[in-house]
Design a binder for these strands. Sequence first.
RNA 1: GCAGGGAUGGUGGAGCGGUCAAACACGGCAGACUGUAAAUCUGUUGGCUUAUGCCUACGGGGGUUCGAAUCCCUCUCCCUGCA
Length: 403
Amino acid sequence: MSTHHFSFRVGKTLPGTLARTGVIHTPHGDIHTPAFIVVGTKAAVKAMTVEQVKAVRAQALLANAYHLYLQPGHGLIEAAGGLGTFMNWDRPTFTDSGGFQVLSLGSGFKKVLAMQSGELADEDVIAPVRERRAFVDDDGVTFKSHLDGSTHKFTPEHSMRVQHAIGADITFAFDELTSLHDPYDYQVASLKRTHAWAERCLAEVARLRQLHPDRPYQALFGVIQGAQYEDLRKQAATFMGSLSFDGYGIGGALEKDRMGEIIRWVNEILPHDKPRHLLGISEPDDIFAAIEQGIDTFDCVSPTRVARNGAVYTYEGRMNVSAARFERDFTPIVGGCACYTCQHYSRAYLRHLFKAREILAGTLASIHNEQFIIKLVDDIRASIEGGTFYQLRDAWLKRYYGR
RNA sequence: GCAGGGAUGGUGGAGCGGUCAAACACGGCAGACUGUAAAUCUGUUGGCUUAUGCCUACGGGGGUUCGAAUCCCUCUCCCUGCA
């Protein structure tokens, strides 16, 4: 198997489900799936060194084309020898296309990401047009930089060129994210646009590969949209599955209550011999549901973001370690946890660091949270190999959510 | 000693007769965070009880007034000038 190519091999499967183990082979090494991919948007996992990220057994890292285009300036990472070399990360890398920013800087700017359709009022989810910093049309997305307000046009071709220059092993097609609150008509129009963009991404990548035959192979994953609608998700999986992508991302608005169901619609249709990445998900119940329905990899900012804001994972659920009740709790976050933080520091010390606004607080909490979620996914992988998936799932979820 | 200026809730600091349990900031407490706009954002923050309720509170005491953190007298302490 050439180290300069990309491949995916399915290992064990779980009868009666879409769950499977596997190995994604990339020019920078293998990823044993299911796997949690840590997020390092701007070529850094926030508050963590690469050594710390390796120590929590992260197999791969995902950065973002939008941020790396704006922040260090276009061309710098390419000049540095690519993303991995630049940031001293020698394992596999992914880049997101900037598609998420269509939503997070557009209709979802300064809003919460809705995970249930009826839960919130539209005005809590949809930003007024005048406040938005991203505007979509059929050609692409016009961004007003969150850094300096300057205007940048991202098209499918542009995103692929940026990702090509960054040099990640796995790239994503440029897509449009919608909100659960966008009307059906808009979801239809948006999906059509995302599909047109997918074909443009494939064409541009083909052009770039021909132009630079010496470069290591960069895989391209197409992204399945369609929000919470079964017909649109299936249509998306059918169309995208027929194109020559190396793998697939499942993205967009996912109703939490129906996460597994939505993923199943898609994964029953997508080619079974290609990897499937679930974009932006890491809550434990979602992870179990997604893996059961055939998801191979995840990425999510939640473990580190939540950590910087004082929340840490335990087997009994997530807790805010800066709470007063931990003032004199000299036990580790999780007894027996193998992470550096739990091996050396107490809840009381972490609480102190958060109250004292010490930067170390976010680092120690991030180490624990990343380790916790990575271990969870690793344990699930082992349970599929060992045929104990359901035992692990039921016991784990009961302990964590108390239900 | 004389003249002037101050003393406000955990802290700093507004208010200068009623709409003041008292702006605002910080601190405290609680919560949220799912392809990173965010080491961020919400809520709350005298007590009792949970109400268009009562009590206690704006250095201490005493007044004026229907009503005072706000005006007057006095005491204590602090600051700035002049001696």
